[in-house]
C-alpha cells in the first residue's frame, strides 16, 4: 500500500497541476462526460440481466450438481465403510468366540488330566500304604516271634550260667520274672 501511495503522490503532482480545465475527467462541459454514464447504465443493465438470468444460475447449477455428486459418492463410500466395519467386527467376534471355546476345551482337558492323575496317585498311595502296613505288621510279627524265641534261650542261658557260677538250679518262676523285667527294660531303652 505504501508503494501505491508513493506512486500516487508522484502522479498526482502533475495531474493536480493540470486539473484546471485540461483534465478530461473534470471536463463536465463536455456532454460526452455525462453521456458515457448513460450508456454505461444501459450496458450494465444488459450485463446484469445476462448474468443474473443466465450466467450465474447456470454456474450455480453446475456447482450444485457437483456438490450433489460428491455428497452422493461420499455417502456411498461411508456406507461401504460401515459395511466393512461390520464385517470386521463380525470377524473379530467369531475369532474371539473360537478362542474362548478353545480355551475352555483346553481347560477342561487339563482338569480331566489333573483329576485322572490325582485318582491314579491316590490309588497308588493307598496301595503303597497297604503294602507298608502289611510290611509293618510282618515286621512286628517277626519281632514278636523273635522276642518270644529269645525268652527260652535267655532262660536256658541264664540257668546254665547260674548253675556254673552258683552250682544250684535257680527257681524257674523267679528267673522268668527277672527275664521279663530285663526284656521290658531293654524294650523301653
Amino acid at each position: 500500500m505504501r508503494r501505491i501511495s508513493t506512486a500516487l503522490l508522484l502522479a498526482l503532482a502533475p495531474s493536480a497541476a493540470l486539473a484546471e480545465g485540461t483534465m478530461p475527467q473534470m471536463d463536465f462541459a463536455n456532454p460526452l462526460t455525462l453521456d458515457q454514464v448513460g450508456w454505461m447504465a444501459v450496458i450494465l443493465v444488459v450485463l446484469y440481466l445476462l448474468l443474473s438470468r443466465w450466467g450465474l444460475p447456470e454456474i450455480g447449477k453446475v456447482l450444485e450438481h457437483r456438490a450433489g455428486v460428491i455428497a452422493k459418492d461420499l455417502a456411498a463410500a461411508r456406507a461401504a465403510k460401515l459395511e466393512a466395519d461390520q464385517a470386521v467386527s463380525q470377524l473379530n467376534a467369531t475369532i474371539a468366540q473360537a478362542r474362548s471355546s478353545a480355551q475352555a476345551e483346553v481347560a477342561k482337558a487339563v482338569a480331566e488330566a489333573k483329576a485322572d492323575a490325582a485318582a491314579k496317585a491316590a490309588v497308588l498311595a493307598s496301595q503303597l500304604e497297604a503294602k507298608l502296613a502289611e510290611s509293618e505288621a510282618r515286621i512286628d510279627a517277626a519281632r514278636a516271634a523273635a522276642l518270644a524265641a529269645i525268652k527260652p534261650v535267655a532262660a536256658e542261658a541264664a540257668s546254665s550260667i547260674l548253675l556254673k557260677l552258683t552250682g544250684s538250679q535257680p527257681a524257674e518262676d523267679k528267673l522268668a520274672q527277672r527275664l521279663d523285667e530285663a526284656l521290658a527294660a531293654r524294650k523301653a531303652a
Binding site: D35, Q36, M40, I43, V46, L47
Partner: peptide, 17 residues
C-alpha cells in the same frame, strides 16, 4: 453520443459474457 469509454465498457461486458 456513444463514447470511446462506452466502447471499452462494451468490450468488458463482452469479455465477461
Amino acid at each position: 453520443n456513444f463514447t470511446n469509454s462506452n466502447e471499452a465498457m462494451l468490450g468488458a461486458a463482452a469479455v465477461i459474457v
